[in-house]
Amino acid sequence: MMGERMDSFIHYASLFLFAAGSFFVITGALGLLRFPDFYTRMHASGVTDTLGADLILWGMILQADGDWLLIAKLLIIMLFLMFTSPVSTHSIAHAAWVGGLNPLLGKDLKHSDIAPDRDETKSAPEAQSADGQHEGGTE
């Protein structure tokens, strides 16, 4: 009796987790489509990578029926995602920044030209910035 109630609780909890996870996954994808420039889209993709993925994985963990090996594997996937997804995002952002892609800043989303201010000493910012503009401004 107790176990049954527990089971149905777990069932509904995982249902909720799946629903919320799906919502956040779609939110992330929609943000990826709607946001105005690369740097803002990055944040939207972060929504999918963190909360969306984690909620769906937690839902799967609840559905794993106490199978410890399954839970361990799901936790390993979650941990792996937690380590790699910010690094991927950071690397893309860093490459865009170094490559001279300028972010839209401020409330009016106006184009800035601050991009590669990090290495005046090391390389030629003009060349990089020109290259980035050429790549970024096709549309």
Partner: peptide, 14 residues
């Protein structure tokens, strides 16, 4: 220094 985060995570995951 430029790729410190990448290096740390690669060290951890290798």
């Amino acid at each position: 220094m430029g790729h410190l985060i990448l290096r740390v995570v690669i060290k951890l995951l290798f």
